[in-house]
Simulated assay, not measured.
Amino acid sequence: MQHTPSPDDGPAHPVRTIRPRRRLLATAAGTRRRRIAALVTVLALFGAVGAVLTEQRVRSGRHRAEEVAQRQARADANARADRAQRDAAPPELKPEWVSPMPGARTTSCFGQRWGVLHAGIDLAMAEDTPIHAAGAGTVKAAGPLYSGYGNSVVIDHGGDVLTHYAHMNKTAVAKGQQVAPGDVIGYEGATGDSTGPHLHFEVHLGALWKQVDPQPWMKARGVDLNCGPGAPSPS
């Protein structure tokens, strides 16, 4: 039997309820407010984080600046201490007399040789070894000056003391030049009457060509030229 709908049965399909326009607008406005509030909250959070980071950077920069200032202060203090120590230290005393060829081998000493006086001490090292002024003074002569001596240098030390350096390959000073102990005045060679590269070293007292034995004279001034007992005889 077919059912015939009655008015009490209600509509055959659900009826869509349409909200009033005012309610829809209110709902949309509420949603916008919530979104804006959320955005404001996020922006405030970012602002707070940025402020913290900025403060950290400022503190870090201030800390680095303080470290740099402290390092500079320590360096300045150390420099002042070093200067004070140098100023308080006694001046370095340099010897007044030195070996004309430090470390050289003595090959012949002062004395008679081949029937004539060997008037100096021979010192040998490798050819072109630097030769040094034995003491302070003024160069009296330099060059191929005297027969048999080749290139040589004579230094006037004052007080009637002269030293003579012979057989150089090359001189390194000029007449009238002031020299200090240890200054390079030439280079070892074999010019003049020489059987091989060496330095012939003489000490003259009173005047040129008044040679004395360099060994005791230099040793009395703290320089041993190794011509004591057992040293090579003139040959």
Rank of each mutant, 00 (worst) to 15 (best):
L123W: 01
G120L: 05
S235Q: 12
P91N: 06
V212A: 10
T163F: 06
R221Y: 09
R86W: 08
M218C: 01
P20W: 07
M218R: 07
Q2L: 13
T195I: 09
V42A: 15
Q56C: 00
A166Y: 03
G30Q: 05
A166M: 10
Q56H: 12
L117V: 07
P130V: 01
A38D: 12
L208K: 10
K140G: 02
D183L: 08
G150L: 01
H132N: 11
H157G: 08
G30F: 06
R21S: 14
R22C: 06
T41N: 08
A51E: 05
G10M: 10
L208Y: 13
T17C: 04
E55M: 11
G176Q: 04
F46W: 11
A136E: 13
R74K: 11
A77E: 14
H63Q: 14
E67Q: 15
P14S: 09
L45Q: 05
L199W: 02
A12I: 14
H3T: 14
D183M: 09
W209N: 15
E92R: 13
G230A: 08
H13C: 02
D156H: 03
M168T: 00
A84K: 08
R62L: 13
R21I: 11
A26C: 07
L45E: 03
D87C: 01
T171V: 15
P11R: 10
P130D: 07
H13V: 14
A126R: 10
L39R: 13
A65H: 12
A37R: 12
E55F: 10
G111R: 03
A136D: 05
M1W: 09
G61A: 15
S6M: 11
Q177W: 03
A231D: 04
Q211D: 13
A75F: 06
V58L: 14
G196Y: 02
A79C: 01
A141E: 12
E188T: 00
D224P: 02
R21W: 13
A81R: 12
L43S: 10
S99D: 11
V68L: 14
Y146V: 15
M101C: 00
A174F: 04
D183N: 13
V154N: 00
A174P: 00
V116S: 15
D76W: 06
V153Q: 03
Q56V: 13
A134Q: 04
D128R: 13
R86Q: 15
A142I: 08
V173G: 05
Y187N: 00
Y149W: 07
Q70K: 13
S152H: 05
D8K: 09
P11G: 09
M1V: 13
V203P: 04
A26W: 09
S152T: 10
Y187K: 00
G10W: 04
R16H: 12
L205S: 04
M218N: 03
D128K: 12
H132P: 01
L93P: 00
R22G: 12
R22M: 06
T4Y: 09
V179H: 07
G196N: 06
L205F: 07
A38S: 11
A51Q: 10
R62W: 09
L24S: 12
A133H: 05
L45K: 00
V173I: 08
T54G: 13
H164V: 12
P90H: 11
G228E: 04
V98F: 01
G222Q: 11
C109E: 00
C227A: 06
T107A: 04
L25E: 11
R62C: 00
Q2D: 14
L43E: 01
Q215E: 14
G176C: 09
Q215C: 05
S233H: 07
H118M: 06
P216G: 08
H13M: 13
